[in-house]
């Protein structure tokens, strides 16, 4: 199993797109904190920004593009055509020839993705929170370790969400477009919460309540419950993806 994880780590980190996800995802949040610093200072001074408990943690959201890209390409790179001469040929053939036991392969892929994203999340969370302390330390309390851990978990679960969806669609473009639009341009999940309270339990919305305390959630969910609900989503989607991957012809 160690060999398989090592191979999957090499595969993932050997893709230029993976490095785009890694670098972007790691840098965006700290850079935003830096760029927003003058505005944040003014808002604090003017008293318009009163709830400071989420400062820093809230900025982590924009970096989620990183784990999304990583989660998608770890699967989609298997399905992209390897060249003009053989349009039907894909890396998946080489992968399954090397590792024909499909569930073991998925386990190795999942482990490699979790390791990479958890490391990325740890670095970017540490950088973002440290920067927040340096810039606004006198106003922003240091978040409890549990909240920091929950933020890292949220990143990792988001990568797994993207991964599971791509396992089902076998194509990276659709899930990546939907996930990125949903997390940045228009949050369809968030709009849905205006229609029905049930939407508060969608994975991206409920997951954020693991570490964000802000009051703009229509339904307040305890952080532990939030973590469990998001995990349940991921487990269910991964199970569907795994069954399809096991049964489908490659």
């Amino acid at each position: 199993m160690v060999n398989l994880v090592r191979a999957e780590l090499r595969k993932l980190l050997g893709l230029p797109t993976a490095w785009v996800g890694l670098v972007l995802g790691t840098l965006i949040a700290p850079v935003i904190v830096l760029l927003n610093a003058p505005y944040t200072r003014r808002a604090i001074a003017a008293g318009t920004l009163t709830d400071l408990s989420d400062l820093g943690l809230r900025d982590l959201g924009v970096g989620l593009i990183g784990p999304m890209v990583l989660g998608v390409i770890v699967v989609s790179s298997e399905y992209t055509s390897t060249g003009r001469d053989a349009p039907g040929a894909r890396q998946l053939t080489a992968t399954l020839a090397a590792v024909p036991h499909r569930l073991r392969l998925l386990l190795a892929k999942t482990t490699a993705l979790v390791l990479v994203v958890a490391a990325q999340a740890t670095v970017t969370t540490a950088a973002t929170l440290t920067l927040t302390q340096v810039l606004h330390g006198e106003h922003a309390p240091v978040p409890a370790p549990g909240r920091v851990a929950a933020a890292i978990l949220y990143w990792t679960l988001t990568a797994l969400l993207a991964y599971a969806i791509t396992l089902i669609t076998r194509n990276g473009i659709v899930p990546l477009t939907l996930l990125i639009i949903n997390s940045s341009v228009v949050s369809v999940s968030y709009l849905l919460t205006k229609v029905t309270d049930l939407a508060s339990y969608l994975p991206d919305i409920v997951g954020a309540q693991m570490f964000i305390r802000g009051s703009d959630f229509p339904v307040e969910v305890h952080p532990v419950t939030a973590g469990l609900v998001m995990t349940a989503w991921i487990v269910a989607l991964l199970a569907v993806g795994a069954v399809l991957f096991q049964r489908r012809d490659a």
Binding site: A7, E8, R10, T17, T82, A86, Q91, T93, A94
Partner: peptide, 21 residues
């Protein structure tokens, strides 16, 4: 069909991950 190597990977990088697996 094809080489089985992702087009962004070098020949050596492809062979090395397969070997590692």
């Amino acid at each position: 069909d094809g080489s089985g190597a992702h087009r962004a990977r070098t020949a050596r990088a492809h062979l090395r991950w397969v070997a590692a697996s």
